[in-house]
């Protein structure tokens, strides 16, 4: 069974006239709570159940390549990711040096870009001199471009993430050596 907005409104009309303050309906598909505080009714839903995967009918047609398979590989369609193949990967520094390096963390989870636009040179390379408010990268989150600032003066010591990859909350993108003039 499913209940839609009209059903809920009809139920509320009856509840309004009664003394009940809360109605909860649980089925194996959903959980709906209608709650009254003062004059206002609110609804809270939980959708239950397990998504049903498409299964080809027995003896049915072939599954075409590229559909339905949980491949982690992205299929390039001429977007910014094409720049990914051209850039160098992270440079690792020795542990003893790392303690004094300043980490540049991502302000948000999203996609890390080293250049202002595909094909353009990266903002910084290892060795580039930066100031506090030098833009060193862009992180794209929910379609919005966020500039990443060095936050410290010095030189770029290492770049920790590959271009056009996903970075998680608080991921370290780069390290700056603050003592190098």
């Amino acid at each position: 069974m499913q209940l839609d907005d009209e059903d809920v409104r009809a139920i509320l009309q009856l509840l309004d006239a009664a003394t009940f303050d809360e109605l909860q309906i649980e089925t194996d598909r959903f959980n709906l709570t209608l709650r009254r505080t003062g004059a206002a009714w609110t609804r809270e839903s939980r959708t239950l159940g397990v998504p049903r995967e498409w299964v080809p009918p027995p003896g049915g047609g072939t599954v075409e390549a590229g559909a339905g398979a949980a491949t982690p590989q992205a299929i390039p369609t001429g977007t910014a990711t094409e720049a990914a193949t051209a850039t160098p990967t992270a440079v690792v520094t020795r542990t003893s040096e790392r303690d004094r390096l300043v980490a540049v963390q991502t302000p948000l989870p999203g996609t890390f870009y080293r250049s202002p636009r595909p094909g353009a040179p990266p903002f910084v390379e290892v060795g580039t001199r930066v100031e506090h408010d030098t833009v060193v990268a862009i992180v794209e989150t929910m379609k919005l471009m966020n500039s990443v600032y060095a936050g410290s003066s010095g030189r770029i010591a290492e770049i920790c993430c590959a271009d056009a990859t996903l970075v998680a909350q608080q991921a370290i993108l780069m390290r700056i050596d603050p003592e190098v003039p």
């Binding site: 069974m1 003394t19 009940f20 303050d21 809360e22 109605l23 909860q24 309906i25 649980e26 089925t27 009254r36």
Partner: peptide
């Protein structure tokens, strides 16, 4: 189905 009503 489970239905619960609380009065007040």
């Amino acid at each position: 189905l489970r239905l619960s009503l609380r009065g007040g």
